[in-house]
Design a protein around this nucleic acid. Structure first.
Length: 876
RNA sequence: GCGAGAGUGGCGGAAUGGCAGACGCGCAAGACUUAGGAUCUUGUGGGUAACCUCGUGGGGGUUCAAGUCCCCCCUCUCGCACCA
């Protein structure tokens, strides 16, 4: 017999066989319950990495397990194929993004097939193909009609040297430079205002927030992030009239969550971008200084600008407002920390009770007035060294006119009501969530289907003219505001309204649009009439289990929820939420190696002498660095291709499921991989060694319930119970596999203890059943090996089509209980009693145990605890 | 700063309030072998000859019983980061 099984041959054989049989093609079926298992589809970057291996192994086990449990399972796969890297490849290597993407998809698909994943490839999607992205355009047009898509001016990162727009991740921080720099040329990036398209996700803010309460099977951290991102806060908008009316401006409206502190508002601040600034300063002596400040602040990129540790800066506008409650005249400033996009873009500043205002007031010598006293009454107005923000709401209003003496919550309410009664403002809700800017000045994305007509203005492309195809005649230079503007053929169009000449929108959509509804498209991927077939969606939605990286915890999942609600309102689906269960798998990490001369080094470029790892280049000692996420730069990558060559897909799958629970980080270990390979080989040898035993089941005539049979049955059903429980309870693959390993260890022991030539007929049948069960339980994890051995055992229909073994509690009943005995909570002995013994019998047996007698001798027995059938505790 | 999560052998990790360390790696000894980086067997938290004893980041508490529940503290990781 061969020492190790031939994983290469076996895996290729079964992959071909499954494909030929169309084993994983799925249709709607009303006779069995449906199950929709989905893993986040990959960006076709070129090669799959271990993170992919992990996430797709997880999804595949779930899909195969649920199939065996009797569900008809939708398990599709596709490609998130639009995006920046394809365009960068075009600029750097001159390969067209389409070709680059196609080649990558072809290679990665081969790699995924090699992992033995049970996808219905008939449903494959590719978001960069017109038959997909035309529906992005279709949805976009519907959203325009609903007022959910609109245009407004917004800032982009602009590299003056490349003359191009940069994505946030293309803006890098550089020491000593105030603001980010271009990733390619290192010029300082600045902000440039362009007209851009937005989705009004804020219209669904409250529903998205409320919906979180339904998502009880989502990971708590993900829900927390969603809620925080939506960021609802209740407050009051209040007008502060100007001391001198200027032009059309009579008042400045602010938003505050702390109306109770309004008597302490000693100045106001505007966001630098606020149009009010220019209106206020016109003609004032301060105007020039203000303009200089505004310009300096607003050219900074967002990340730098909003860094929390950034120094608070501002400038006085020269204008004053009236605090409506105190009638005092207070100065209006412009401050770098005030956000234009949030609230009204203006704040009332209460330095005594807001730390930011406090720091600002200290710096510019603005009065600080205490209006909330703490419960102890110990705050001294002139001696504050920080704002008193008191989050517990235990303070009392002071220096607040007729409101003095109220507790903070009462003060909030009373002042809010007073504001509304006086007509100074309204109680209101604000969200942190902003509208979703989807315009990208890029080529490799969905063209936004809008036209600019000289006569009619902004005109949507008619639905029957979709798709607006990406042009092929685009030079990839990395320069220019937008590649589509460089196409000679693309921009020129005819206005569908007046027939005159029109210019096409040259922006493309954010690729998050593509992934916001692809799970709906999988339900009816070939429908040519609509993005989603409502009947198909009705059948399959919602996704029962979604698996993917935690990095998508906020944006992707939020946008997908938003789109689901929009498409629901369009009548394409009836579900409110797209994903019932979400599993966020951890990163795949590996040790790093550092040589002081050669920096990060590959494990294969090191040698080991006397337990010390040395650099293969210079022989210097290697420092073992932190265990980090696999990355090329740290040289701590393991390759899925090599892994499959050497150990096979089954080993790759088993290791990535065994080494850690799915939601935690998984530390890659070459020796750990070997351990899993050994395990699979043990299974292979076990089945082959026992084949003669089960081969002639019918030959022997004797039959009786034997010790061996009991043992086999107990081990088998105990394992069924454990593996099923681990899978049903949060997909604890690691412990499920551990249970299978124990089971194999037990079977080896039974094989050794009961030689083959002594076996009775029922014992042979017991072995057959035990081995069959082993293979069935192993099938979701190591499908190729299980399938091969299933055939070896003489079965003719695919193991993937078999039913999951059923746990029978009768087989795990024992005739004896082994009960640990404690004295004062410490383990002192163990006793064996017949199963079913009464409490008194067990305690009597425990008391007569020799060791226990020693411990309790001469002591007063104060209490006896008996937990059937687990434990006895004598308290003395 | 705010929010979330995590600290258990040499390592990855197991433990519905009930025998801490399952399973795997590594290590040690042995068997088989021309050989073994194959395979198999046995052992493997610390201290101790043993009986025992100590032990789940630290300190308190609840309980007959705490890795698990409660309070305080420390460390680490992740997310958000001036949202008024």
């Amino acid at each position: 017999m061969a020492q190790t099984y031939d994983h290469q041959a076996i895996e290729a054989k079964w992959q071909a066989s499954w494909e030929e049989a169309g084993l994983f093609k799925i249709k709607e079926d009303s006779t069995t319950p449906k199950y929709y298992c989905l893993e986040m589809f990959p960006y076709p970057s070129g090669r799959i990495h271990m993170g992919h291996v992990r996430v797709y192994a997880i999804g595949d086990v779930i899909a195969r397990y649920k199939t065996m449990r009797g569900f008809h399972v939708l398990h599709p796969m596709g490609w998130d194929a639009f995006g920046l890297p394809a365009e960068n490849a075009a600029i750097e290597k001159g390969v067209h993004p389409k070709i680059w993407t196609q080649e990558n998809v072809a290679y990665m698909k081969k790699q995924l097939r090699r992992m033995g994943l049970s996808y219905d490839w008939d449903r494959e999607l590719n978001t960069s193909q017109p038959d997909y992205y035309r529906w992005n355009q279709w949805i976009f047009l519907k959203m325009v009609k609903q007022g959910l898509a609109y245009r407004k001016r917004s800032a982009v990162n602009w590299c003056p040297s490349c003359e191009t727009v940069l994505a946030n991740e293309q803006v890098l921080a550089r020491e000593g430079k105030d603001g980010g720099v271009c990733w390619r040329c290192e010029s300082v990036v600045f902000q440039k205002e362009l007209e851009q398209w937005f989705f009004r996700i804020t219209q669904y803010a409250q529903e998205l927030l409320d919906g979180c309460d339904q998502l009880t099977s989502w990971p708590a951290p993900v829900l927390a992030m969603q809620r925080h991102w939506i960021g609802r806060s209740q407050g009051v908008e209040i007008d502060f009239p100007l001391a001198d009316t200027r032009k059309d401006v009579t008042a400045i409206r602010i938003f505050t969550t702390r109306p109770d502190t309004i008597h302490g508002a000693t100045f106001m601040s505007l966001a630098p971008e606020s149009p009010l600034v220019e209106q206020l300063i016109e003609g004032l002596d301060e105007a020039d200084a203000v303009r200089t400040f505004v310009e300096r602040v607003s050219r900074l990129d967002k990340a730098t600008r909003t860094a929390a540790d950034r120094e608070k800066e501002g400038v006085f506008t020269g204008a004053y407002a009236i605090n409506p409650f105190t009638q005092e005249q207070i100065p209006i400033w412009v401050a770098n920390f005030v956000l234009y996009e949030y609230g009204t873009g203006a704040i009332m500043a209460v330095p005594a009770h807001d730390q930011r205002d406090f720091e600002f007031a200290k710096q510019y010598d603005i009065p600080i007035r205490l209006v909330i006293q703490n419960p102890d009454g110990t705050l001294v107005p002139d001696a504050l060294d920080a704002a008193y923000e008191e989050h517990v709401q235990a303070g009392v209003l002071v220096n607040s006119g007729s409101f003095s003496g109220l507790a903070v919550p009462d003060g909030k309410q009373a002042i809010g009501e007073h504001v509304e009664k006086q007509g100074w403002g309204t109680c209101t809700i604000n969200f942190r969530l902003r509208d979703w800017g989807i315009s990208r000045q890029r080529y490799w994305g969905t063209p936004i289907p809008m036209l600019y007509c000289e006569k009619c203005g902004l005109v949507p492309v008619p639905e029957n003219q979709l798709p607006v195809l990406l042009p092929e005649d685009v030079p990839f230079t990395g320069k220019g505001e937008s590649p589509l503007k460089e196409s000679p053929s693309f921009s020129k169009a005819t206005c569908p309204t007046c027939g005159g000449t029109a210019r096409r929108e040259s922006d493309t959509m954010d690729t998050f649009v593509d992934s916001s509804w692809y799970f709906l498209r999988y339900c009816s991927p070939q429908d040519t009439n609509q993005p989603v077939n409502p009947q198909a969606a009705q059948h399959w939605m919602a996704v029962d289990q979604y698996v993917g990286g935690i990095e998508h915890a906020v944006l992707h999942l939020l946008y997908a929820r938003f789109f689901t609600k929009v498409l629901r309102d369009l009548g394409l689906t009836t579900v409110d939420e797209p994903f019932v269960h979400v599993l966020t798998q951890g990163m795949v990490t590996k040790e790093t190696y550092w040589c002081e001369e050669h920096r990060w080094v590959l494990p294969s470029d090191t040698t080991t002498e006397h337990g010390q790892r040395l650099c293969g280049h210079c022989g210097k000692a290697i420092v073992t660095g932190r265990t980090e996420k696999m990355s090329k730069s740290k040289k701590n990558i393991a390759s899925p291709d090599e892994l499959c060559d050497r150990y096979g897909a089954d080993t790759a799958r088993v290791f990535s499921l065994f080494a850690a629970p799915p939601e935690k980080d998984l530390e890659w270990s070459d020796t750990g991989v070997e351990g899993c390979y050994r395990f699979l080989n043990r299974v292979w040898r076990l089945v082959h060694e026992q084949l003669p035993v089960i081969g002639n089941v019918n030959e022997s005539v004797e039959s009786k319930q034997s010790e061996l049979l009991t043992e086999l049955q107990r081990a088998t059903h105990h394992t069924i119970q454990r593996v099923t429980g681990d899978l049903d309870r949060d997909f604890q693959f690691n412990t499920a596999i551990a249970a299978l390993m124990e089971y194999v260890n037990q079977l080896y022991k039974l094989m050794k203890d009961y030689p083959a030539n002594t076996l009775l007929a029922d014992e042979r049948a017991g072995w057959q059943s035990a081995l069959d069960t082993l293979l069935l339980l192993l099938a979701p994890f190591a499908p190729h090996l299980a399938e091969e051995l299933w055939e070896t055992m003489g079965h003719t229909s695919s193991i993937a089509r078999q039913s999951w073994p059923v746990f029978n509690p009768e087989y795990v009943v024992t005739t004896e209980w082994t009960i640990p005995i404690q004295v004062n909570g410490k383990l002192r002995s163990k006793i064996c009693v017949p199963a079913g013994s009464t409490k008194d019998q067990v305690i009597a047996a425990a008391q007569s145990d020799a060791k226990i007698m020693e411990w309790v001798q001469g002591k007063t027995l104060r209490k006896v605890i008996y937990v059937e059938p687990k434990l006895v505790n004598f308290v003395i």
